[in-house]
Each structure stands twice: as structure tokens, then as C-alpha cells.
């Protein structure tokens, strides 16, 4: 098992980078999507709803192939890594937008009213009043999603990204000991998910404490 561990460990970096990259795309793109979806103007709202629902309905593995073959046709060849980050990032953005939306909607009406009564411009109202409070609600489901994304990143191996799962396939073909190899891979994924959960718990506690200080 130690031998397998050494081989599979070469994929850790790719797995972590794909996960972090896709999550980053989701965190950044998800917020404007959430805000557009809350818009009173249906011309802004409708396309976002369509995009989010389409992204969530199509299986991630299909998305990855679509992004990989779709975007790397004539102009520029997309690396498997870029395609994985892009494809999974879009999915993450769709999910994160829903998580943000739930967080924003959890902020009581009275907070919006107080901000409006004080004539806070919309941007300040969001930045200084609503989003800091929404963040507390957003962190636990976002962390859960980050761990789900870590696991989903395994499908990047099917387009050839050399992550943990990719190496596990190769090692299985070489050693013919699939059970041990994939048990090792599973163990690695568990170990990688632990720090995410720890960071989330820490961030959550820090924010809640700040509210009550």
C-alpha cells in the first residue's frame, strides 16, 4: 500500500489545484450570479435562472467533455487542467450562487430597512450590511460544497488531468490490484477533505464570535 501511496501522491497537487481553482471560480462568479438572480428586472434575472438550472441539470462529466471539446477547437488548445478548472468552476459558480442567494435571503428585512432609512447607497448596503451577515450563513454550506467538489474533481481524470484518480487508474492497470489502489485513493481524498472542514469550522466560529463580541 505504501508503494501505491507514493504513486498516487504525485496526483495530489493536480487534485488540490483543480479543486481550489474551480472553487475559486465558483466563489467569484457565484456572487454576481446570485445578485442578478435577485434583480427586480426579469431581463437580468431570467438568463441567470436558465444558466444555473442548465448547469445543475447536466452531469459534471458531460460538462467537462463539453468544455474540453467545445472550447479547445480551433483557436486555442485548452489543457486538460484548464478545461477541468473551467468546467468544474462553472458548476461551482451555479451552486455557489444558490448558496449566496440563501445567505442573502437569510438577512432579516429589518436590516435592509435600516440601511435604506439611513440612505445607504445600494453598494454600501450590500458590502457593509448584508453580505457580512450573509457570510455567516454561507460558510457551512460552502464548505460542504468544497468537499463535494474535491470528490467531483476525480472526474477530471476522464479528460486526462493527472490527478489522484488518474494515477489510480494507471496504477491499477500496471499492478492489477484495483482494490488496494483505490482504497489508497479513497484514503487520500479523506485526508484532503479534513483541512477544508477544519478551516470552515474555524472561520465559522470566528465570525459568530465577532457578532457576539
Amino acid at each position: 500500500m505504501a508503494d501505491f501511496l507514493q504513486v498516487l501522491a504525485t496526483g495530489i497537487q493536480t487534485t488540490v489545484l483543480i479543486t481550489a481553482g474551480a472553487f475559486g471560480v465558483g466563489v467569484v462568479l457565484g456572487l454576481p450570479l446570485a445578485l442578478l438572480r435577485r434583480s427586480r428586472n426579469w431581463l437580468l434575472r431570467a438568463p441567470v435562472i436558465a444558466v444555473v438550472e442548465v448547469i445543475r441539470a447536466v452531469p459534471p462529466i458531460v460538462w467537462l467533455f463539453l468544455v474540453y471539446y467545445g472550447l479547445s477547437s480551433d483557436l486555442a488548445q485548452l489543457s486538460t487542467f484548464q478545461a477541468a478548472v473551467g468546467g468544474l468552476g462553472l458548476i461551482a459558480a451555479a451552486y455557489m450562487s444558490e448558496i449566496y442567494r440563501a445567505g442573502i435571503e437569510a438577512v432579516p428585512d429589518g436590516q435592509w430597512e435600516a440601511g435604506r432609512a439611513l440612505a445607504l447607497p445600494n453598494l454600501s448596503l450590500y458590502r457593509r450590511v448584508v453580505l457580512p451577515q450573509a457570510l455567516v450563513v454561507v460558510i457551512p454550506p460552502a464548505a460542504t460544497y468544497a468537499i463535494a467538489l474535491l470528490k467531483d474533481s476525480a472526474i477530471a481524470s476522464v479528460i486526462g488531468a493527472q490527478d489522484i484518480t488518474f494515477h489510480a487508474f494507471q496504477e491499477t492497470q500496471a499492478s492489477l490490484q484495483g482494490l488496494s489502489v483505490f482504497a489508497t485513493a479513497g484514503l487520500l481524498y479523506i485526508l484532503l477533505s479534513l483541512p477544508i472542514a477544519a478551516v470552515a469550522r474555524y472561520a465559522d466560529r470566528a465570525l459568530v464570535q465577532r457578532m457576539a463580541a
Binding site: G110, A114, A119, R128, V129, Q133, M211
Partner: peptide
């Protein structure tokens, strides 16, 4: 401009908890 001239106090305070 109007709201800057009119202060409001709510039943449930609505202070910013953070």
C-alpha cells in the same frame, strides 16, 4: 437626499449585529 433628512427608529431596533 430625502432619507438623509429623515431619521427613523424601528420597533425591533434593527442595529447591525456585526
Amino acid at each position: 437626499a430625502h432619507r438623509r433628512d429623515v431619521g427613523m427608529v424601528f420597533q425591533s431596533f434593527n442595529l447591525f449585529p456585526h
